[in-house]
Design a binder for these strands. Structure first.
Lengths: 118, 118
DNA sequence: ACGATATTACGAGAAAGATCGTAAGGTCAA
DNA sequence: TTGACCTTACGATCTTTCTCGTAATATCGT
């Protein structure tokens, strides 16, 4: 995942409504939710909703599928994983105690040098 | 970590220059880097640099310290951890196979139930 | 105190983002 | 085909963000 994509995903999430939409979809899972339902839940008029949904779509954070006359949106976890990977990637490259605050997931997820456990 | 803070952190990172600055500081570690050096590295005039540094500071992503006439900035990992935690938190709440794409770091980071190692 | 260095504060202009109303594109039921 | 429904597309307006130049603040060496 390259920097522009990361920035895109970050920017897409960096908004009250879009974050709410995304979390809604993440909780809902692969089944997804129709645009109308999303709009109701987050309290957005249709045109504003589309605007934000498009932003999430452009960032690759959600997928779109048609079900008769409704459009179903669902979260795409892979981009989020890429994002988290990127964010924690260089996290522990500074040295020893740099990440004692707890960013261990990075070490586990990205640099399986020492304990090549999985 | 509450939603507004999350949005703040996400928004702070969702910019080419700020992301570059942040990564620079993450790589550098607790030692940090003087503002001037950062500006040189990312190619920003002083006033623009301050603008972005302030944004990162407001978001809690970096810390500021004075060293004689230089201001040293360093990454604050805790906010990033909170961010990653939040992002992956509900990730697996949808059901079983929802997160098979790999959002396991969340499980590792947030529920140290099984291997309470470290 | 003075000049030099390092950095931030302020203000203006340009660019991007958000919100909404209304119109248009598909899809369904009859 | 017609009318109703769900959703997106377009355009206008408003707000926020970004960038830069210049001025101000703080620290250092002499």
């Amino acid at each position: 995942m390259k920097t522009p994509e990361i920035i895109g995903a970050l920017g897409a999430l960096a908004h009250e409504h879009r974050l709410a939409i995304y979390r809604l979809l993440v909780e809902r899972g692969p089944q997804g939710l129709a645009a109308g339902v999303i709009g109701e839940r987050v309290g957005l008029v249709p045109s504003s909703l589309t605007f934000h949904l498009q932003a999430l779509l452009r960032a690759g954070l959600v997928r779109q599928a048609r079900a008769s006359r409704q459009l179903i949106y669902s979260a795409d976890f892979s981009v989020m994983n890429g994002l988290v990977g990127y964010l924690t990637d260089k996290c522990c490259s500074a040295g020893d105690g740099a990440c004692d605050t707890g960013c261990k997931p990075a070490a586990i997820a990205r640099s399986p040098r020492r304990k090549s456990a999985a």
